[in-house]
């Protein structure tokens, strides 16, 4: 099996500014203003074709940033991401135009992804069928419920046949029946040797679906490997975290913040 995604030493640095004037000075002057914040630091991993990798971690650990970097939405500050083929990100608010109808959104999105008019006409019925929108398809997207939006977003992304699929919490708004359907579709993708990344707080879904997992903490990889090894450790940590007093939780978060704003880390 060949490697489909190679992530090497990826770092993402954000700047935190206390005043808007600092932001302006930082752009204009060569001197650095504001505070550094490392959302990701030195992340390296490889994925093979057909791998399904889950990202776990508490809020703010860098899961969404990492998925955005892999999808190419957000540029990394350092390191490299090599992807064989094209990557598609599915998030809850996955780029739908609220003013246009569902059908127009399908056309628009496919157009932007480089499909021709004829190809779009071929894909359209399948997308509508899968999204289960029925007569809502000709209503503006702003009238959709969040479940409907994510169904449409998922359906479009899945049917445009990406080589690498990144699913960021997109299934958590759908009902169980739709989640099952998506899982079926994803299993079909898996059989065709596509790589998938799965981000969810639902450990149940994770266990059901992923084979490998990467546990992120403070923007770094805390543990990676087989799902059977990582998830129990992560659950253990979660229970410990839950058992902490508020004071301890606060200390934990402060430690995290401090670590993420230092330029070098010795841990």
């Amino acid at each position: 099996m060949s490697k489909s995604v190679i992530v090497k030493n990826v770092t993402k640095k954000y700047k935190l500014y206390n005043k808007t004037s600092e932001k302006l000075l930082d752009i204009l002057l060569p001197k650095s203003y504001g505070e550094d914040f490392y959302a990701l630091r030195n992340i390296s991993f490889e994925a093979e074709e057909g791998d399904i990798i889950g990202f776990v971690g508490v809020n703010g650990s860098g899961k969404s940033t990492l998925s955005n970097v892999i999808a190419g939405v957000v540029p990394q500050t350092g390191g490299t991401v090599d992807i064989k083929g094209n990557a598609s990100l599915i998030a809850v608010s996955a780029g739908l135009n609220n003013q246009l109808t569902g059908r127009e959104n399908i056309e628009l999105k496919c157009l932007m992804l480089g499909f021709s008019k004829k190809e779009i006409r071929g894909l359209e019925p399948d997308i509508i069928e899968f999204a289960e929108l029925d007569k809502f398809i000709d209503q503006p997207v702003k009238s959709y419920s969040s479940g409907m939006k994510s169904r449409l977003g998922f359906s479009i992304s899945v049917h445009t046949d990406p080589d690498v699929l990144i699913i960021d919490e997109a299934l958590s708004v759908g009902d169980k029946a739709f989640a099952e359907k998506c899982l079926d579709k994803m299993n079909e993708f898996k059989a065709r040797g596509k790589t998938m990344f799965f981000i969810s707080h639902s450990i149940g879904q994770m266990k059901q679906f992923c084979e490998k997992a990467i546990w992120l903490e403070f923007g770094q990889v805390r543990m990676s490997g087989d799902i059977k090894e990582v998830i129990p450790e992560y659950e253990k940590f979660l229970n410990e975290y839950k058992a902490m007093t508020n004071e301890e939780k606060k200390n934990f978060r402060e430690k995290a913040m401090q670590q993420q704003s230092e330029s070098t880390v010795t841990s």
């Binding site: 135009n97 003013q99 246009l100 127009e104 056309e107 628009l108 157009l111 932007m112 503006p140």
Partner: peptide, 17 residues
């Protein structure tokens, strides 16, 4: 080609309301 197609959707989405 994309510019032409996208501009039509743009026109539509500003006036749909």
């Amino acid at each position: 080609y994309l510019i032409r197609r996208l501009s039509l959707y743009e026109l539509k989405s500003t006036n749909n309301n």
